[in-house]
Design a protein around this nucleic acid. Sequence first.
DNA 1: TGACAGGGCTAACAGAATTAGCTACCGTGG
DNA 2: CCACGGTAGCTAATTCTGTTAGCCCTGTCA
Lengths: 197, 197
Amino acid sequence: MTVAAQGVGATPRPEARPRSVRVAELVRAALDLLESEGPGALTMRNLADAVGIRAPSIYKHFDGKSALEVALMEDGLFGMGDALHAALADPDPADPVSSLLHAYRSEASLHPNLYRLTTSSAFPRADLPEGLEDWAGEPFFLVTGERHRSQALWAFAHGTMILELDDRFVDGSDLDLTWRAGAAAFGGARGRPRRSR
Amino acid sequence: MTVAAQGVGATPRPEARPRSVRVAELVRAALDLLESEGPGALTMRNLADAVGIRAPSIYKHFDGKSALEVALMEDGLFGMGDALHAALADPDPADPVSSLLHAYRSEASLHPNLYRLTTSSAFPRADLPEGLEDWAGEPFFLVTGERHRSQALWAFAHGTMILELDDRFVDGSDLDLTWRAGAAAFGGARGRPRRSR
DNA sequence: TGACAGGGCTAACAGAATTAGCTACCGTGG
DNA sequence: CCACGGTAGCTAATTCTGTTAGCCCTGTCA
């Protein structure tokens, strides 16, 4: 392993950008709207209503809707990064791949629509804080020790997560087992069907 | 294995629904628009222009935009299903997992925006031909022989594909290696340098 | 011949993001 | 004390979206 031991990564957690009171309020309301009413309900008018102003006034705080979404994605990435790093720092050093996947799934399930947004096609890499993306994804590298393997594991996690959220796994199949099958494939679980490393 | 041997699945290819000339023309134009100009350009007015009519006339052929999208998804699923089944029926029985993943990646890369649409959140399962989804996904089962493992493999494929299309894999990392890492994890490839087939 | 359905059209609407331009407040410098 | 500039609200209006209503022509068939 080329990184510091003990589950602590080499990539520093980026600084969150300061937000004015109003901006913070808008982002919070936007997240509420997004999660409780769905992506279609996140309109400038609805958001304005939620904080008691008119839609055009939002433009005093954000350049446009996409800038607002960037702020949401930022929160989403910080949340995911914290969850993943915590999972590795935590107790169980035994099966880190499974721990990581479990943390990933839990965090995403907590804010499904935020997760969808954060992983949506229009990813504004340039507008996000420097290093945020790397830091949030680092745990996958810490757990696999190799770049492409870590990308593959991340891809599995994201694929499973988004298909689960979108209800794409048919019949009443047990998704726990699907996650475990992935963990096993990537050398995590010593799961039931017993496959060594 | 509970399925017929020799790479041929038990699930029959569903019948494509018949389409009138105009409907076929509209779907073809919609696909053109989608792939050449992007999802934002797929509007009723643009589509109407493309076939030389006015937007409201489209409603004589489709119930609405989402019905049009269903038709596109249908084509996308048929295309993917054909590609995957062909990959298994084809020559190389040696490394079926890699063959399958290769076919998946090729087919999706051919129509990236159609792939995105077909795997988008709003998946109108009920409006699609009976059995289409199962048939298109069957090759993943044929190749793994176990349900949850097949779901995990599909999730890896989709995750890698969508992250690749969305340019989410940072730095100039070699995505071939990422795909291969996944294939290896799922029991496909043997050696790293060694690529059979 | 007459009814009807198919498939085009224009006009119009509601809701989306966004812009322009106005105004009120609020703190600071002369 | 007063003027000034910045902050943050507002209304009105623009453009683009999907969609509906209602009209009309044309071919087919009883």
